[in-house]
């Protein structure tokens, strides 16, 4: 079954120039692995294809149990000169939370019950110190 991100996570939007920064934080820390698996850079790129013109980097933060998406060329011409009503993109956290994810077999909830840390088999999740590098290089 599919569900919207807003049902299991919250988000805050921030801006730096023309860069949009979106956090994604599960209400229950046990849902962190599900977010890591389901909310990939590719999915976020597709979801924001009309908003984000540049690269998107995903930072995985296992200590905090949160994801951070840094989206470049995302705020038309940038906060100070944009014609957009919401020039800062402050409302875009809720655009991310509209994304639908698939939790069809409940596998990840099962993993989470037995192991609250990162699933060892999930090679896409780097450790805390290198959280950004492998992700950003790949994408």
């Amino acid at each position: 079954m599919s569900q919207k991100l807003c049902e299991i996570a919250h988000s805050r939007a921030g801006d730096k120039g023309n860069t949009l920064i979106l956090s994604l934080i599960p209400f229950q820390e046990s849902d962190f692995n599900l977010l890591v698996k389901e909310v990939s850079v590719e999915k976020v790129k597709a979801h924001f294809r009309h908003q984000v013109k540049g690269e998107i980097i995903r930072h995985v933060l296992p200590e905090l149990k949160a994801l951070q998406f840094t989206c470049f060329e995302a705020l038309t011409s940038g906060v100070t000169t944009s014609l957009a009503l919401d020039a800062h993109g402050k409302s875009l956290s809720y655009a991310l939370l509209e994304m639908e994810i698939d939790d069809s077999i409940g596998l990840y909830s099962f993993i989470n019950f037995s192991n609250t840390s990162i699933a060892a088999s999930d090679s896409t999740v780097p450790g805390p110190k290198t959280a950004d590098t492998p992700e950003s290089k790949r994408n």
Binding site: H10, R12, G14, K16, I21, I25, H59, L64, Q68, T70
Partner: peptide, 10 residues
């Protein structure tokens, strides 16, 4: 939420 606010690279 506040820790990650406006942070390009945590």
């Amino acid at each position: 939420e506040q820790l990650l606010y406006e942070v390009i690279d945590p």
